[in-house]
Amino acid sequence: MTGKVLTFYLGGLLFGLDIVAVKEIQRNIEYTPVPDSPAHIVGLFNMRGQVVTLLDLAYLLNNEKEPEKGRTVCIVLKPKADAPDHIGFLIERTGSVVDIHDDISEGPPANMSGELTRFVKEVVKLNEELLMVIDSEVIFEQ
């Protein structure tokens, strides 16, 4: 793709999301865990009267439940017409906004793990590191 991507770190890796899909970044959130809910649900929090469902993206990506790290930064996605609920996910820290274009990106490499390839739309070859761009549609499907 060509356009701006918001980058963030999760599990030490650099990920990115099409900036069009992002509603906002929330810091210092206090979320409420939901006992007896699916494993990929972290909890719910109140964003100006809207209830946002927090997903565990790290868990979705590698199927491992990480110990609670007390993270309080999250990215909230723009709700879509067919998925009006607000969803978001916790991240380690935000990166920056980078411009990408088709010349420097390609599809996920063949040896990438199966779970990851479901989410990673393409890999962008930045100068210093690789950026994995996540497909927000797939997150909504969870």
């Binding site: 979320y31 939901v34 007896d36 699916p38 649900i41 109140n46 209830v51 469902t53 607000h86 969803i87």
Partner: peptide, 27 residues
């Protein structure tokens, strides 16, 4: 009463979510 977010799937123990007076979400 706000409806249960769809992403929670089937959680029989809850009928919805709400925001309490202290601003926190409660099931």
């Amino acid at each position: 009463v706000k409806p249960l977010p769809k992403h929670l799937g089937e959680c029989p123990c809850y009928s919805g979510v709400t925001i309490l007076g202290d601003g926190k979400v409660a099931m």
